[in-house]
């Protein structure tokens, strides 16, 4: 199976007054049709910039470089702005965190839904309207026909996010990039939106790249996971592997930080990752997590720590890579010793 989207060694540099900010430092990943890839990380890890880079929507000062960047087999680096804007919306759909800011308040839902189809696919107004109603019903909006005449402010946050999803589906995209799509929503609505996204993705056989900081969301929807820290992927693999056998100390730390009903004792000390994310300005060598890592040693400061496969995986389709000087067994042992 060929990848729907593939990027190799993506870097994003942003010039700042004090030097060059290396926001994303050589990350590679691929998205397949019918598969959900979750990019997870805390604020400042570069996950949102990565999603913007995929859509070519980075701020103008940012410098994007990649060894390879293909979408449906085509080299994206050679696309003109015009080609890119054709692809955005028609073949690549994006959902943002705050649905209110992504919908234009002065146009009706119907106008915004149909505009894309009319513009990208030369559909007639009636056809576009019909598809809009079909998709609004698909995303669970009742009385869809009458909703077309409503304006964004008349809808609740959950409904707006549903409209966003319907809008993104209008042109039948091959890939969806969702950047924190449920963070602004209530838990009850969050579950529904995620469920909806997962169902639609299977139904339309789309690729889904979900960017989030919420490990609970990741565990429930991801097929594959990439954990980012300080602009790098520190651990990547299939969801079961990452959650059942977290290997990188950062991933282990993150999982230890969240209380799990039924597992964590009430009021018990939660794990913590001391310190703060290092500055990414200037030259960065060695493991960027070593400042906060309890297993750090002199070896961690040496450059060239690569993402390597965890040994002992024999099953097909199961992947698990990590970026640490310790052996995978040692990492897992560390975790067991902690518990």
């Amino acid at each position: 199976m060929t990848a729907l989207f593939e990027v190799k060694n993506l870097t994003i540099d942003i010039p700042v007054p004090s030097g060059m900010l290396h926001a994303v430092r050589g990350i590679s990943f691929e998205a397949m049709r019918g598969e959900t890839l979750c990019i997870v990380g805390e604020s400042g890890c570069g996950k949102s910039l990565t999603s913007l880079a995929m859509m070519d929507l980075l701020p103008t000062t940012a410098i994007r470089n990649a060894e390879k960047m293909t979408f449906q087999g085509q080299d994206m680096r050679s696309f003109s702005e015009h080609q890119m804007s054709d692809i955005r919306g028609s073949q690549m759909g994006m959902i943002f965190q705050e649905p209110m800011t992504s919908l234009n308040p002065s146009y009706s839902i119907g106008d915004q839904l149909t505009e894309m189809l009319i513009r990208h696919k030369n559909a007639s107004r009636a056809e576009a309207r019909e598809r809009a109603i079909y998709l609004l019903e698909k995303v669970g909006i009742t009385a869809a026909a009458s909703r077309l005449n409503q304006y964004p402010h008349q809808l609740s946050g959950g409904l707006r996010q549903r409209v966003m999803i319907a809008m993104m589906l209008m042109c039948d995209p091959a890939l969806i990039i969702a950047d924190e799509p449920t963070t602004a929503l209530d838990v009850t609505i969050q579950a529904q939106i995620l469920l909806l996204l997962a169902e639609l993705q299977k139904e339309f056989d789309m690729g889904l790249i979900l960017i989030t900081h919420d490990l609970g969301v990741v565990a429930r929807v991801a097929d594959r996971v990439a954990v980012m820290y300080a602009g790098e992927i520190v651990e990547a693999g299939t969801a079961e592997e990452i959650f059942n056998r977290p290997t990188h100390p950062y991933t282990q730390g993150l999982l230890d930080c969240i209380p799990i009903p039924g597992k964590t004792a009430r009021g018990a000390k939660l794990g913590a990752i001391p310190g703060i994310v290092p500055s990414l300005v200037g030259v960065i060598e060695g493991c960027s997590f070593r400042e906060r890592c309890k297993y750090a040693s002199d070896a961690c400061a040496k450059p060239g720590i690569e993402l390597v496969p965890v040994s002992g995986i024999v099953e097909e389709h199961v992947t698990h890579d990590y970026r640490c000087v310790l052996s995978a067994d040692q990492c897992v042992e560390n975790l067991a010793g902690n518990a």
Binding site: I141, T142, V187, A191, L194, L195, R220, A222, I260
Partner: peptide
């Protein structure tokens, strides 16, 4: 019940269950 069922614990063996709460508050 619906509210608590919507809690997403980091357990990859569980999917997302529908809370059956409908779309609108």
């Amino acid at each position: 019940q619906a509210l608590l069922n919507s809690v997403l614990t980091p357990d990859p063996s569980l999917g997302i269950s529908d809370s059956h709460l409908g779309a609108t508050y």
